[in-house]
Design a binder for these strands. Sequence first.
DNA 1: TCTAGCTGGACGTTTTTTGTCCCATTAAAT
DNA 2: ATTTAATGGGACAAAAAACGTCCAGCTAGA
Lengths: 347, 347
Amino acid sequence: MDALFAAQQKLMPEMSELLKKRYQILQTISLEQPIGRRTLCEVAGATEREIRKETDLLRNQQLIQMKTAGMTVTSQGTEVLDKLKVFVREISGLTDMEVQLQAILGISKVVILPQDSDEIPAVKSHIGKEAARLLEGLFTRYKKIAVTGGSTMAAISKELSNGKPDRALQFIAARGGLGEDVLHQANTIAAAFAEKTGGSFKTLYLPDHLSAEAFEMMMKEPVIKEMMDLYDQTDVVVHGIGNAEEMAVRRHSSLEEVEKIRSGGAISEAFGYYFDKDGKIVYRIRTAGIQLKQVQKASTILAVAGGGSKARAILSYFKNAPNPTVLVTDEGAARKIIELIKKLEEY
Amino acid sequence: MDALFAAQQKLMPEMSELLKKRYQILQTISLEQPIGRRTLCEVAGATEREIRKETDLLRNQQLIQMKTAGMTVTSQGTEVLDKLKVFVREISGLTDMEVQLQAILGISKVVILPQDSDEIPAVKSHIGKEAARLLEGLFTRYKKIAVTGGSTMAAISKELSNGKPDRALQFIAARGGLGEDVLHQANTIAAAFAEKTGGSFKTLYLPDHLSAEAFEMMMKEPVIKEMMDLYDQTDVVVHGIGNAEEMAVRRHSSLEEVEKIRSGGAISEAFGYYFDKDGKIVYRIRTAGIQLKQVQKASTILAVAGGGSKARAILSYFKNAPNPTVLVTDEGAARKIIELIKKLEEY
DNA sequence: TCTAGCTGGACGTTTTTTGTCCCATTAAAT
DNA sequence: ATTTAATGGGACAAAAAACGTCCAGCTAGA
């Protein structure tokens, strides 16, 4: 970092935290605008008084404006956001952590966003936005994109900008699961991606859990076979990473399954596969969906997951993750991962 | 200024004041070390609590250390002072003001130091230090230096660093006045300069006010004549600028003299000359001392004066000041001068 | 027309800051 | 050797600021 900034922080140590806090608030407003005070409190994880104090200041500084519909960021505000982006990352030590994580996880690129999405819901949007930007950067080269479900994936779809539509883009639901909340399943996400980008989408309506016979039968259906072929041609895979047990519960897995997952020591889950602490596959849902081999064949894989609670899962999944994977995560998860690694090294 | 800093200040407007305050405290400690809390309060013009709060912070930041003898600046502290020097000047708008003043006063160089020496006594030391540094820069080229009296000049002598002694340096008392406080008269100052730099000094012990006859008589004395010759060879003149009336009072001038000064509309005083608002000479003390013509012949002239109360005097003196003059002043005086000029322009 | 969500005002209750002592200690001066 | 004047640190009541929390009035959109 610049020596001048170092000196500045030496003389004003409180500056760092203050800057981060205000930046985060301003950024959240920018993302959710127009947004009211109360709503902002919840989404930014702060008390009403605090939000009020800061937003009053931001208004006096002409960085935001307050209308009856809610608060909006002014042009000056977006400019400030833009100018300070790198700086905030720097003083949060995010750049350093990104390099560390790249080494730890053995992948070529990690993007870390400030704060912890477990504590501050708005961080999920920030992650979504960053992932959306990265994904958009791939659109010119790659057109066949497989997407999974989950709230993180939903956040990405929200942040995809409706730029010039690209009809060639094709979003493929990576799994046919109906176990989850409709808004967060792969099918819905694929549709949302397609709508935002002007592309098309392919869905797969099949329950996650099928008996062996039913499964075999279905796989012979032309509609399903077609999807299987698409998976083979996939250029990009975008997926979240979940905690094994949480996912099992959310999917209403049978007791038998839960037992397998538990006894196998499963920690993480991604596109229907359960991994243990060494990244070995413990169990996979018998479902129509993308296969691990097919994922590994993709040119680029975008793994998106944030929050301290996801740290162990991320670490587990990346033990054997394909090399071209890019991870988008947040500070909370990143710090926890580094902490876990340090503890491991001590023993 | 850098766009990044502008954005930073937009988001944290309180930063600017805070930085200036802490910097000033740290700088004062650096200048007066070792210094105790109480003493620092007086010299920095702040309450005990405030000083205490800030010094506690500075200590936690390892910029100063507290011993029983007083507070001292650590090596980190001096480094921070050094790094932030330009920055503090920038955010105080001093650089801008310097350019403005150069134009207003019609001279080539102005140096402005933060704060107002009327309010904060320590600022006088800062002015002294800056003037001392400038003067030291001239030592290699110029050896014959005429100095006047006054508390400002005394401040310079205090801040002259005892670097490698230069026996060739010669400090000449510009006037022989005995009217003032001994510590602040030209003779004492010349001696102090010489002691700090390892040079020699020439003094002139003659009362300021002499009858015409006595004056003529004395001028024929060889000791005096020698001084007069020295004035002709002077390379550098360092002088303060005073308020006319204040000086008259301090010098215990006769009623007759005071009347002349008053009726002439004298505003400023420098090396025994009194100037009115247009820079015209209203009166001069009949004394053995450097002549205005001799001052004008010098290669460099260093005028040093600070504090809002000196603004009018500075403006008055510089109406006709020699071009190669360099002015060292403070923010208080500078702002007041610019304010006065603005008012003048309005009418 | 109605309702949900927005801002701005208000106010009692903490929490922090502030002003002001005194005290033991130490280094210098007598 | 003794005094003196300065130092940092501790303490505490008073003042000020910050905080949590409510309500009123308004506006945009359903």
